[in-house]
Nucleic acid binder design. Sequence first.
DNA 1: ATGAAAGCGCTAACAC
DNA 2: GTGTTAGCGCTTTCAT
Lengths: 351, 351
Amino acid sequence: MAPAGGARKPATINDVADLAGVSKSTVSNVLRRPEMVAVPTRDRVLGAIDRLAYRPNALARQLRHGRSTSIGIIVRDLRNPFLAEMASLIEREIARFGFAAMFCATEGAPDRERDAVDLMVENRVSGLAFLSYLERPEVIHDLIDGRLPAVFIGADEPWADSVTVDERRGGALAARHLLDMGHRRVAFVGPCLQDRADSLRLEGFRGVVTDAGIEPPVIRWDPPDGGVTVDGAGTSWRRLLGGEDALSGIFAANDFAAIDLIDAADSLGVRVPADLSIVGFDDIDIAGLQRISLTTIHQPRAELVRLGVDALMGRIDGRVVGAPRVILAGVSLTVRSSTGPLPARVASAIR
Amino acid sequence: MAPAGGARKPATINDVADLAGVSKSTVSNVLRRPEMVAVPTRDRVLGAIDRLAYRPNALARQLRHGRSTSIGIIVRDLRNPFLAEMASLIEREIARFGFAAMFCATEGAPDRERDAVDLMVENRVSGLAFLSYLERPEVIHDLIDGRLPAVFIGADEPWADSVTVDERRGGALAARHLLDMGHRRVAFVGPCLQDRADSLRLEGFRGVVTDAGIEPPVIRWDPPDGGVTVDGAGTSWRRLLGGEDALSGIFAANDFAAIDLIDAADSLGVRVPADLSIVGFDDIDIAGLQRISLTTIHQPRAELVRLGVDALMGRIDGRVVGAPRVILAGVSLTVRSSTGPLPARVASAIR
DNA sequence: ATGAAAGCGCTAACAC
DNA sequence: GTGTTAGCGCTTTCAT
């Protein structure tokens, strides 16, 4: 057993070649094209590799090839279970193609997003997967365009391959569901710094609601501890959910927020769905727990990832060329028990 | 705007040098030690960098230095919110030191763990952070020892720096809490493939329970869909939680499983805590939701990460040398409402 | 203050 | 089959 701690210099292909009494090309061949090396030589080389615990230096190989075998994954926040699972699925999927995952969390900050892309570019990742996208289109576009393939999963950017559900349609489904149940005082709640998917969800929601002659407030909230603002003015859930003109239906930009909202309602004694109906977006696993039972817009996570990684791999190996493709996956409403009809007394009060 | 899609060859330091009419050493100096380059030269170089949208090739620099500026993070499963948040915290913390994060999920499979370490070693990461650890000690030890610094966060391996709560003590706290409330038919539930933290939690739990003269069953379960086995024999929650000798207290290896267990109980009409008390481990955010309100063993996530990354950085820059250190953070029981006293009728039935 | 040159570890022509 | 060689893009002495 070696003395613990010290960082011994790792063996190189030359060390192996010397020990095996061959040239380094032969060692390289043993590793990359074993069939073209004579069996006795190969065995000698493998023996040396074993003795020296040789691991090829991926940095050197990648430098030679001009790119690394990593994919950059850029994601807002791994604490959102939807994003964590998507990231995890991507990691697993790209591993099947021999790629490693490099992660960067942007925490919803555009400058961190820019830094993340820079980091990935400098590390010469083979491709980039965005799980959230904040920046104004041009900025990142200019950073990336022509340098490396990128795919947006869960956001639809016209200048790169995108795999997404129709976010607008999801927002519209949520709106229609709430309206159908009689709700009129409805609102959207989303993070202070919206990513582009959030914006589209809001758009879809607002479109349907305004068509019904209602102008929905947009609530900004970073759960669980962030302040609540409407039109830039601070307020509180107590104010929004209590009193005569209390909201009776809320569409949250994602389940993560929706579940925190349910908890806030529970704390205030606001009953869900008797007093307040809540619709989320994503359909994360815990949304299906009996105790949460969140009505939400379902996203086919595995399918999105599969399609997204496929698209990316197609670009990387040049199998796919030409204009960016937008792939839409189906979106649907999953009705559970966080939504219900507008209570009669409120319904009459509004008329 | 460049034609979309194509992967133009990125500019190199030579291109910049040529355009600026200097040597590449000067370009390198402009980037790494700007103060030792004359201002006019520097400006010319910066101009060229800008014009060519030059990004230094990190692979080349890292090859030169013999190591990359990445840290490998090895984690069982990002769907477990505790692990996802820990991973996220690590990524943020190492970014402050200029390191990038490389992730690998092992899904609880020892061979995937070995592959992950191999991948990291080949990529010459500067250090390794384990968030879960499966393999028999020697295997990974031999793979790593002397090659690169490693830190275990949430598991205590004597051959490398470790930052962890006292897992055994956590298990013991859970056991004592259940016993104190009068429970006698208690069990442990954990994943089919335990990591080393799981084992220690079980040990601590079992120690206290057997001291009370009870031999607790060990239930293997991979929520939400996996089968339930005890001593290798398949069974079901219905059987374990119903009937005369139903369990009345369960300690789950982690909150993720505990919450799924609550859900299973809800489905079976088993009331928590009236019929069944459940203790988790980790104290993830959703454990604190009113609707979940899980009694659990609290882990100080941010502190564990801070200490762990500190330890790792110390080894990387050689500030810390010598024998592995084990750092213990405090562990405590957070009592919420998933546990309660043994119902009187059961208590009397047992006497 | 700037440049020339060596070399990190590997791969891929091309020679033998 | 196997060896020789020429880089990949960068940093870092060491001259000038």
